[in-house]
Computed example of a mutant assay.
Amino acid sequence: MKSLSRLGTQPASLPLAADDILEFHAARLLLLVKICGTAGRIDGLTKMAKLDFFTRYPDFFDVARAAVSKTDAPDAAAVGADRAVEASMVRHHYGPWDKRYYHVLAHLEAKQLITVIKDKKSYQISLTALGRESTQRLAERPSFEPLIARLKTVKSVFGAKSGTYLKDLIYRLFDAEVGKREMGRVIQK
């Protein structure tokens, strides 16, 4: 993964994918903690990863939302929106996971945008004052409007659920796509 600050020496002719950029993932996770968290905090890496999964995979989110809310109505914010998976995740022990999480969380903590505190067997990921200020600036940018709309919808459906509930739901609903997928393999749409 590359940081935008280190790309100045790279030839402009080389292709650059958003998925390869550290700041792309950092911005999404900051907004996820702000919008999907409670008072700017998410309790548990599992919950963070599963909320991120539903944000990144809108088609899986629609199926899961219909299963828990007994509705087939598509997300109003997603109608006509780009439904592509921007950044794929892999099958891990506890369901969808991104091996870059530890790198991105360490980056955000080093930049003093979040704190990560171990509480028994779980980690609490919280925005700092600087993190709240930064997410406010991100939220004011038009380019983040579709992501923010998706995050708000994900929160409205799954924000109050635990990470274990979300993991179990994903395994129940997406056994072929996630549960039976080989460890470390990319989850396909």
Score class of each variant (00 low, 15 high):
residue 160 A to Y: 06
residue 125 I to Q: 05
residue 56 R to S: 08
residue 127 L to G: 00
residue 48 M to C: 14
residue 68 V to W: 09
residue 46 T to P: 03
residue 142 P to W: 09
residue 103 H to R: 12
residue 95 G to L: 04
residue 80 G to K: 08
residue 74 P to I: 10
residue 44 G to E: 08
residue 132 R to F: 11
residue 50 K to I: 08
residue 125 I to T: 07
residue 97 W to L: 12
residue 123 Y to D: 11
residue 56 R to H: 05
residue 161 K to D: 14
residue 139 A to T: 03
residue 91 R to I: 02
residue 140 E to Y: 01
residue 77 A to Y: 01
residue 99 K to I: 14
residue 95 G to C: 06
residue 61 F to C: 12
residue 134 S to G: 08
residue 43 D to M: 13
residue 73 A to K: 15
residue 113 L to K: 02
residue 79 V to K: 15
residue 64 A to F: 00
residue 55 T to L: 03
residue 159 G to V: 01
residue 70 K to Y: 14
residue 97 W to P: 04
residue 41 R to I: 05
residue 55 T to E: 06
residue 158 F to L: 02
residue 71 T to L: 13
residue 75 D to T: 09
residue 140 E to K: 05
residue 114 I to F: 10
residue 73 A to L: 14
residue 123 Y to W: 12
residue 133 E to V: 01
residue 107 H to W: 02
residue 49 A to I: 03
residue 45 L to I: 14
residue 116 V to F: 01
residue 97 W to G: 04
residue 150 R to G: 03
residue 132 R to H: 15
residue 145 E to C: 08
residue 64 A to N: 00
residue 137 R to E: 11
residue 49 A to G: 09
residue 132 R to K: 14
residue 150 R to P: 07
residue 114 I to K: 08
residue 53 F to P: 01
residue 95 G to H: 10
residue 81 A to Y: 10
residue 54 F to C: 00
residue 155 K to M: 04
residue 145 E to I: 06
residue 55 T to C: 10
residue 118 K to Q: 15
residue 51 L to Q: 02
residue 96 P to I: 11
residue 96 P to R: 00
residue 141 R to S: 14
residue 100 R to I: 02
residue 56 R to G: 06
residue 120 K to A: 08
residue 143 S to L: 10
residue 109 E to A: 01
residue 135 T to H: 06
residue 50 K to Q: 15
residue 122 S to Y: 12
residue 114 I to H: 04
residue 42 I to L: 11
residue 66 A to F: 03
residue 46 T to Q: 14
residue 136 Q to V: 07
residue 158 F to N: 04
residue 107 H to N: 02
residue 57 Y to S: 09
residue 45 L to C: 13
residue 119 D to R: 14
residue 122 S to F: 11
residue 144 F to I: 04
residue 151 L to H: 00
residue 56 R to A: 03
residue 148 I to D: 05
residue 72 D to S: 15
residue 138 L to I: 00
residue 59 D to M: 13
residue 154 V to H: 01
residue 148 I to Y: 04
residue 162 S to I: 05
residue 63 V to H: 11
residue 119 D to I: 12
residue 43 D to V: 13
residue 162 S to V: 04
residue 133 E to L: 12
residue 145 E to T: 07
residue 43 D to G: 12
residue 59 D to V: 07
residue 70 K to M: 14
residue 42 I to M: 06
residue 72 D to F: 13
residue 94 Y to C: 07
residue 67 A to Y: 09
residue 50 K to V: 05
residue 156 S to G: 01
residue 123 Y to M: 13
residue 53 F to H: 02
residue 56 R to I: 02
residue 58 P to I: 03
residue 117 I to G: 11
residue 46 T to Y: 11
residue 101 Y to G: 07
residue 68 V to L: 12
